[in-house]
Design a protein around this nucleic acid. Sequence first.
DNA 1: TATATTCTATACTCGCCAGTATATTTAGGG
DNA 2: CCCTAAATATACTGGCGAGTATAGAATATA
Lengths: 215, 215
Amino acid sequence: MAVRQARKSIITESVSPWTPVDARVRDRKRKRDAVILVAARAFRQHGYHNTSLDDIASELNVTKPTVYHYVANKEQLLFECFRAGLHQIMEAFEEIRNSNEDARTRLGAVVTRYAEAITSDFGGCMVQAENQDLSPAMSRKVKALKSEIDQGIRQLLKEGIADGSIRDCDAKMAAFAIAGALNWIAHWYRSDEPLTAVQIAERYLQLFELGLRPR
Amino acid sequence: MAVRQARKSIITESVSPWTPVDARVRDRKRKRDAVILVAARAFRQHGYHNTSLDDIASELNVTKPTVYHYVANKEQLLFECFRAGLHQIMEAFEEIRNSNEDARTRLGAVVTRYAEAITSDFGGCMVQAENQDLSPAMSRKVKALKSEIDQGIRQLLKEGIADGSIRDCDAKMAAFAIAGALNWIAHWYRSDEPLTAVQIAERYLQLFELGLRPR
DNA sequence: TATATTCTATACTCGCCAGTATATTTAGGG
DNA sequence: CCCTAAATATACTGGCGAGTATAGAATATA
């Protein structure tokens, strides 16, 4: 405590980076995140249109205007869910950025993390909800993020074909097939599912890598 | 015509199976089918909740009460779309019923027909719309049909493992992966897509059968 | 041609829900 | 201890859209 105060006075004289004001900012962010998480869960479970802001508010033990204190409107709430879900998937690519394994192995890592993301509340919400419910502007952003993910998978496939770890194939269609299979997990996955996301990814990868035909 | 009339009088004396009454019944069915098809297209394109019955009516050059003359309510309209879509997929299994090819080849045929169904208006609508919007009773019926399809694919996989045409694998997860990849086509497929459904199925089958790993 | 039935339209109701105007509480800052 | 700003609540509005009451047109049957 004394240390903190000492530091702050070095950085700036009157304004402290650890004032209660800052704590409030963090508090606000925490609450906002909670709003978005609860929304994601509700959207995932009941669908966007079957969830009212009153539902979300009451789930948070709060009333509607409070929700509006943290987000501009219902659409933005959905957008934030999309963003969080897509962000989780993006992170899968971050993790292999500095790997020097062959591309097929790296793809395996991405698939596993992808499966984990898609079984989360945000991932599930993202798949359940349609971007038909987003305004053109928001929808464009979501599409851009989705495209980035698609291109990431395609790139891995192409690299794999180049480095010999992947059989020559139509990278675009293969990427669609893989992403589709993964996305669809959200439609059948329940929290009481005996298999974990990682285990599901393992089985999927067996199929994608080895194929159905006996070797 | 004369033949028909001769036959009918044999069957029953006073009631004719080809009276104008019957023509009206057929007419009614044709109109009802048109209502459902237009609904499917609208649901697919804009989503269930973003489509009003007025929209559908106006698309048919008609008003809302007319629509209600052919279906009980909006939910039933959605249900009929589901049913039509699922029926198309079921037909894929009918077609291979009497085939004596190995199971992997039969699965290939099913996948191809499945892809065709999923790129149709009904198939697309089925995937876009959530069965969250169906009453518990309707939802149960839809789930039963979906389960039948899932079991059909699993069965083919098991038969393939038994007859040696398919590598030993987790049939349940493989079926989920394959169906998921196929269902997801509806999310990116557009009518201006350069590849036909059959061509898409070909590429998907290459992946499913041969796998990514070079052979 | 009278009559019943089917088909379609006009013109409503009614509830839900996103969003808001306004008041009240809470907590820092001076 | 007052004052300002953030946080939350109460109580509303306004519109959209599912579903309907009712009437009129078309068609078929007798």
